[in-house]
């Protein structure tokens, strides 16, 4: 296994969605519209790896939380104001929307999985990606982990070939230069 590229974005609780959109515009020609904070964060971590991503790639994404603002807007509209939810807020909440937009923007055609980020998230993402890599379904795997507890970070790794296990992003990316974005 080779980790061929890695990126990491870090931002603060106060970093606005507008600032995330502006940063994303530097990487993508036509970023999608009507997307939530989780999608913005994940796209921003994946975008720097776009030049190295091939179509025959799988996407394995994990997040500790949903997009909280989107979830709050949905809950308040439906449960307090007794309104129908806005369609794009609802669809973003029930689909693997972040994975969809990353695949669309990076031209990824393989499997696309989303898991909750628990204590063993990197091992779990590697185990899922290894199945597809070892069976020859894909040639590359893009792994992303989003964490927003106060300040936020998204870490991304692009792999070629089945990988030796690593317990953390730091361990897995130790041998390559990590593209870092701070907001």
């Amino acid at each position: 296994m080779t980790v061929i590229a890695a990126s990491e974005i870090r931002g603060q609780t106060a970093t606005s969605d507008k600032a995330l959109k502006a940063a994303l515009g530097q990487w993508l020609d036509s970023p999608p519209r009507r997307i939530d904070r989780l999608i913005l964060q994940c796209l921003l971590a994946a975008a720097p790896l776009k030049p190295q991503v091939q179509p025959n790639c799988g996407l394995y994404l994990a997040s500790a939380h949903p997009a909280r603002a989107n979830m709050g807007a949905l809950l308040e509209a439906v449960c307090v104001q007794h309104k129908q939810p806005k369609p794009f807020e609802f669809v973003n909440s029930v689909s693997n929307a972040a994975g969809f937009y990353i695949a669309q923007q990076l031209g990824i055609e393989g499997p696309n999985l989303f898991i909750g980020a628990g204590e063993q998230v990197w091992a779990q993402l590697q185990a899922l990606a290894n199945l597809d890599l070892q069976d020859g379904l894909i040639e590359q795997a893009l792994l992303l982990v989003c964490d927003e507890r106060g300040d936020f970070s998204v870490q991304a790794l692009l792999l070629e070939g089945p990988c030796e296990r690593g317990a953390s992003f730091a361990e897995l990316s130790a041998d390559i230069e990590v593209q870092r974005i701070s907001l």
Binding site: H65, R68, M71, G72, E76, V80, G116, A117
Partner: peptide, 22 residues
Amino acid sequence: ELEALTRAQQGFAPEDSTHLDH
């Protein structure tokens, strides 16, 4: 459970959000 909480307190705060893996 989050819907019930939102109804009870007539709102939803970011800290009410639960961990996706809990």
